[in-house]
Amino acid sequence: MSSSQDPLYAGLGQAVRIATDLLAALIAGGGLGWVCDTYLFDSTPWGIIGGLVLGGVTGMRNAYRSVQRWTKT
């Protein structure tokens, strides 16, 4: 964030953001896996397992990327 905004609020914003980003990627991954399992292929339970793993990877990568962006300022 920029120097024009209060660093306390910018920092709080970043902290709150990362926590939910981790969770949301997990929900998205699990949801996609579940859709694959139930509607697209008959692959229970592998879709949801793979989806959750990929979702976890995505969440960590997103958190890592936003922290990286944050330290550059």
């Binding site: 953001r17 939910t20 969770l23 949301a24 929900i27 998205a28 949801g31 990929l54 979702g55 995505t58």
Partner: peptide
Amino acid sequence: PIEIMSQLARPISLAVR
């Protein structure tokens, strides 16, 4: 697939947060 998930995660994280 990872990027598709991270795109899908955007509205979810906005709403859930």
